[in-house]
Design a protein around this nucleic acid. Structure first.
Lengths: 280, 280
DNA sequence: CGGGAAAGGTGAAGGGTGTTCACGACGATT
DNA sequence: AATCGTCGTGAACACCCTTCACCTTTCCCG
């Protein structure tokens, strides 16, 4: 806590920190302004952000590096907000009612998405969250000398997956439900989630015998939730009237049935509507 | 057919037609060039298209009106291609095997989407296919004097829905499967598809007693198909390895089970792989 | 057939965008 | 107090969409 008890030779001088802090807060303001522009439906352009903050476009390059990086920042911020929102919706039902938490979070997610179309698009409509695309784009380009080499911006969806994943695991522990056995699973899927694969093999091992099947069901559920929400948000479904929830409810019910929530679905429907009511 | 038997006073003179035809073919070339740019991953900009065709950007305004209109044109063209591709995949199985046709078409759709990401995004990632957004955008703007007032560009997804819908209806006629009764359906959904609603009420009536339930199942199926494909295409799923089909297969199986295809799913799996093989 | 009208193309221009760069101004470090 | 790094600026480049005045080519019709 103090400057003394640190064993390092470089005690964090408050003076040096000050610059650092100012810089940080400027970045935060940039993100905030960007989000506010997004919310108002205006284009998020470097010049617009700069103007809103009272200075000119090139100045932003001291903080951001490129418009792509700005989007990355915005994306992270938005992800954080979604997760925060979902957590708030799930919290009242307590850790020992994961089914209710799941339904509440999913409902909040859909609701947020429908009321924040532009933000949702920015986050989910950009393909390749893993930055492959970005890497390719920045490969040829000469790096801007001013570009900050921030180690952040990684993940983003990760927060998201983790949040749902945690609830899902608790759910399976409280009320175990049938999951496909390892032999039933697609071999490619098994390969990905095995030691040496890319997909958090530690997690699969940590979950024990049924780990793989559980992860499989989780991904399937996420696919369906994402699918229905995207469909509703981008309007590829018959207008706002159907958007009033029946499709979403049906998909949720199917997900819920698979995860053993079929029994008290009536109660869970009530939960979903509570979340909606609380938001309005 | 001839210039004489027409009761109108304006017989379509071949001379007058010539201009018309040249114009038409120029528009077609514009679309073709746009698509080729899209395929190559280059930005589809008016200048790029014009340059590719050997003239300058303003010239395009004699044909297109705006870059948004160009996108609309491209979108229609792409939709047509997707439907063509799906029809080709479904054709071999014959009209009297709608289950196979359905699976074949869905497989082809997914496959096309995965290999034409940019085109897919242009078509499906643009929200509000119904042009509400476009209308709003063009409301304030002063119409360009040169903008052609073409009556086309309407629909596009319509082709898509119709194609799948037809198969779906044939399917239900050949091997009827249980659909939700009118009383089980969400009231908003019923309202939309009733006379006076917006969603083709004639269709619902035409399908008879179970029409509403059938349409409902159709929309649910489409939602899930769209969802899984979008998820795979935009990469919000664990990398290309999982992209190798297991999630898609699982979703398809679920859709199939609901539509009474559970019995001979093994055969249908083979159909799906035939389609894939034929493409490769 | 020849003159007028329409269509189709051009260059210049206006208002955007992202991005780079040379230059000052200002605060912090020594 | 002198120096050095940080931050912001204005000018500039390259690209974008769009409009306009103009000019050429083509067509239509008297």
């Amino acid at each position: 806590m103090s400057q003394v008890e640190s064993g390092r030779v470089e005690p964090p001088r408050p003076a040096l920190k000050r610059r650092e802090r100012l810089r940080q807060s400027t970045v935060e303001e940039i993100v905030a302004v960007g989000r506010s522009l997004l919310r108002e439906g205006r284009d998020v352009t470097l010049r617009a952000v700069a103007a809103e903050m009272g200075f000119t476009a090139p100045a932003l390059y001291r903080y951001v590096g490129s418009v792509a990086a700005l989007n990355e920042l915005l994306s992270s911020d938005i992800f954080a907000e979604i997760v925060r929102e979902m957590a708030a919706a799930a919290e009242p039902y307590g850790e020992d009612d994961p089914a209710a938490q799941m339904v509440a979070a999913a409902t909040a997610f859909r609701c947020w998405a429908l009321t924040h179309v532009d933000e949702f698009r920015l986050v989910f409509h950009t393909n390749s969250l893993s930055g492959e695309h970005v890497a390719r784009a920045e490969a040829g380009r000469p790096r801007h000398p001013l570009a900050p080499t921030g180690p952040d911006a990684a993940g983003g969806v990760q927060l998201f997956a983790d949040f749902f994943g945690r609830i899902f695991i608790r759910l399976s522990q409280r009320h175990p439900f049938p999951v496909p056995a390892r032999e039933e699973l697609d071999e490619d899927f098994v390969a990905v989630h095995s030691p040496g694969g890319e997909g958090k093999p530690d997690l699969a091992a940590l979950l024990g015998e049924d780990g793989l099947g559980l992860i499989w069901l989780f991904e399937l559920s996420w696919a369906q939730l994402y699918g229905i929400v995207t469909l509703e948000v981008f309007g590829h479904v018959r207008s706002q009237l159907v958007r009033s929830g029946s499709l979403f409810t049906a998909v949720m019910r199917e997900i819920g049935r698979r995860a053993g929530m079929g029994a008290d679905w009536e109660r869970l429907t009530a939960v979903s509507q509570e979340v909606l009511a609380r938001r309005a």
